Simulated scan of single mutants.
Amino acid sequence: MRPVRAHSPEFLQATQTSYDAIAEAYAAGFPDSLTGRPLESALLTAFAELARVPGGPARPPVADIGSGPGYVAARLHGLGLPVFGVDVSPRMVALARRAHPGLRFHVGSMTALDLPDETLGGIVALYSIIHVPDDHLPSVFAEFHRVLVPGAPVLLAFQSGDEDGHLRLTERFGQEISLDYHWRTPDTVAAHLGEAGLELYARVVREPVGEEKRPRAFLLAHKPDGAPGSAAEGR
């Protein structure tokens, strides 16, 4: 995967620098945020079922986009999927490789995946589109559509609310950062998916738990395969 270059969009540079600064503290604080989250675990299991091709040829791998410390990729691997992680932060990638030496992690950006067309059997992006500005989100989903094989699923998770908005954090874990967080309604994100040619399969919203301040939204979509009925429904 290509590292983030100097000519990359400003938000990518800021995201990379910020997560490099907080990587160790973040990984220590959130070694596996799926623990104690049965809904998230169930949705990952559903994604894995949709990504499988029973009795078919060798499955293409799935990608965990915004893989962070690597625990989502590890969970997908445990569910029997060939998987690799992609993160904009080199430091996060290094920590993920250390924690999960049997898996592949690469530095890269969801805005320009260094992959040929139609080579992924699925994409998981949990709380990674939250750092993508509104004007870049359509191109991100177009990139997802480009690299997915027909019928492949996409699972997104993001902070939500009654309306779209964003905030900028300048400090986290005692480190100076400059990181934008965008929250969007499920309808907003679903509309962008549709415009990119990705069909919505399911949406789930859960209320905040613990220290969370906003609802969590989950959208499961797929790239149409051109056959009668959706690929997701036929598996």
Rank of each mutant, 00 (worst) to 15 (best):
R5G: 03
E10H: 10
Q13N: 10
Q16C: 11
T17R: 14
S18G: 03
Y19V: 03
Y19K: 04
D20A: 02
E24F: 10
A27V: 12
F30Q: 14
P31D: 09
D32A: 09
L34P: 01
G36D: 05
L39S: 01
A46T: 14
F47P: 08
A48I: 02
L50T: 10
A51G: 07
P54W: 13
G55A: 06
G55T: 09
A58S: 12
A58Y: 02
P61A: 15
D64F: 03
D64S: 06
I65G: 05
I65L: 15
S67A: 15
G68F: 04
Y71V: 07
Y71W: 00
A74H: 09
R75T: 14
R75D: 13
G78E: 11
G80V: 09
P82W: 00
G85E: 05
G85S: 04
D87Q: 07
R91D: 00
R91I: 01
V93Y: 08
L95A: 06
L95H: 05
R98K: 14
H100D: 02
P101V: 09
P101Y: 00
G102V: 05
L103V: 09
F105V: 11
H106F: 14
V107E: 15
S109L: 04
M110T: 03
M110P: 05
A112E: 15
A112N: 09
L115C: 10
P116T: 02
E118K: 08
L126S: 14
L126R: 00
L126K: 00
Y127L: 10
S128G: 02
S128R: 06
I129F: 12
P133Q: 03
D135K: 11
D135F: 00
V140C: 09
F141H: 11
F144K: 11
V149K: 09
V149P: 01
V149D: 05
V149Y: 03
P150A: 08
G151L: 02
A152I: 10
A152D: 01
A152M: 09
P153R: 06
L155S: 08
A157M: 03
E163T: 03
D164I: 00
G165N: 09
H166P: 01
R168G: 03
R172A: 12
F173H: 15
G174Q: 07
G174Y: 06
Q175K: 15
D180E: 14
D180K: 04
H182D: 00
H182Q: 06
H182R: 05
T185Q: 11
D187F: 13
D187A: 15
D187E: 15
A190I: 05
A190G: 10
H192R: 14
L193Y: 07
E195D: 13
A196T: 03
G197E: 09
L198M: 11
A202R: 15
R206Q: 15
E207Q: 12
P208C: 05
P208F: 02
G210I: 01
E212D: 14
R214Q: 07
R216W: 13
R216A: 14
F218P: 02
L219N: 02
L220V: 12
H222Q: 07
D225R: 06
D225H: 04
P228Y: 01
A231M: 03
A232L: 11
E233Y: 11
G234Y: 07
R235I: 04
